[in-house]
Design a protein around this nucleic acid. Structure first.
Lengths: 226, 226
DNA sequence: ACAAAAGTGTTGCGGCTACACCCATGA
DNA sequence: TCATGGGTGTAGCCGCAACACTTTTGT
């Protein structure tokens, strides 16, 4: 008994704003659209939502296919449903953003798609409303990072205060005072200092830290005022 | 040329978390589902996204139909796309929340649907994942109210400090000190004091305020720390 | 010796909280 | 006159920003 049949059905897609971090800057993974219209223009990684698949599942599938990684931090950005947003046919798209360690992704997988990492400050033109998705994703990332330590998602398992601070500077596009940043972060008591130092980025050497397990539970103080 | 045809299409709906404010408490408008399964269970107001209609448009249409009001404050909450969330058939639903002045809506229109305003503290069971939508909407409302004065949306064009404070107490589920609340709000310089007093709720009489026009532009200080 | 990052300490300002306090007036 | 909300003032606390200062070590 199909009660809903008088209503139209639509293509539903997911588009992934895949963010990494490299050399002090946030980077976005884009791939070149291979056919007209807008051939050669850059596009987010996307895919259609299949039957028996939630949009979360679809986004995970796209991520697996394009960068070969699973269990990635990922959140919904919002849904874009203007009737003419896709020039080919109507497609309603649910945007997600994902945070990946840029060093760990499957480079062959990415190369195969002709994809390219772009620094956030120099993004090329993108198809459709993908630029809007990216901008909204970056805002959501700031919100997330303002309430929870974003560290292991974009850096490595262990990281130094310098690395974490530079990451936050990239996310919030502003400087943080080294001393104050350190004290603020440590006062939250969500990092664990390891008995190991990074000797590469300073003469004195900087302790590595890693996130404590319970970091996932939010509810901290706010870290960065917006 | 339909390049997407190998992919499935889906029903796409909007569901509206319609919030009002009455006698010191937030209220939610629900209507009873009229058919099996879950007949008699309560449901959000919803509707299907039509062709040539964005989801924002669809949500506005649903609001117009159910409470007879246009130009209502409204924001996207998120998209719910579990394959089995609707027991009848697969429907992907985009949830919105709307803020309405409970006194101004079209009561005949609402009665016709058998709808009922429920205080937030005593919500009945709802169908499908509607409860999740409501909870997420209430969180979004807190976020919004924390950065912008939510006043004219839920109260009247003009309102007293007492009314505004009680509204905020309902939204954040906690008490605010009357003096401090007043000073904080006025320091934002987004309200305009009218030469008119409300004599009904106190002996001395309280000035009415209304929102200045530019209140819509966000970017204020944070009002309530979460 | 110098530079550069690590790490700690100090000080001042601003905002928030918890009140105290007077005002106006209806019951 | 008492209770109630309106409205203002104030003292203390806390957090943050700015910045000084010491440590360590490679070049």
């Amino acid at each position: 008994m199909e009660r809903y049949n008088k209503h139209p059905k639509h293509f539903v897609a997911v588009d992934c704003v895949i963010l990494g971090y490299d050399e002090g800057e946030l980077c976005l993974l884009l791939y070149p659209r291979g056919f007209q219209p807008s051939k050669g223009a850059w596009s987010l990684m996307g895919g259609f939502v299949q039957n028996n698949e939630s949009s979360d599942d679809a986004a995970k599938r796209v991520l697996k296919q394009t960068i070969g990684l699973e269990d990635i931090f990922m959140k919904q950005v919002g849904t874009f449903a203007e009737p003419d947003r896709d020039t080919e046919d109507r497609v309603i798209s649910i945007a997600y953003y994902a945070l990946v360690r840029i060093e760990e992704h499957d480079k062959a997988c990415v190369r195969e798609h002709g994809a390219h990492w772009w620094p956030i400050s120099e993004l090329p033109a993108m198809i459709f409303d993908h630029r809007k998705m990216v901008d909204k994703a970056l805002l959501k990332l700031q919100q997330e990072a303002g309430y929870r330590i974003i560290g292991q998602e974009l850096l490595a398992e262990k990281f130094t205060m310098l690395q974490l601070r530079q990451l936050y500077q990239a996310i919030f596009q502003r400087e943080f005072d080294p001393g104050n940043f350190r004290k603020k972060i440590l006062s939250l008591d969500v990092l664990e200092r390891l008995n190991e130092k990074n000797m590469l980025e300073s003469k004195k050497g900087a302790f590595y830290y890693k996130c404590k397990e319970e970091n996932n539970e939010r509810g901290l103080d706010r870290i960065v005022k917006v």
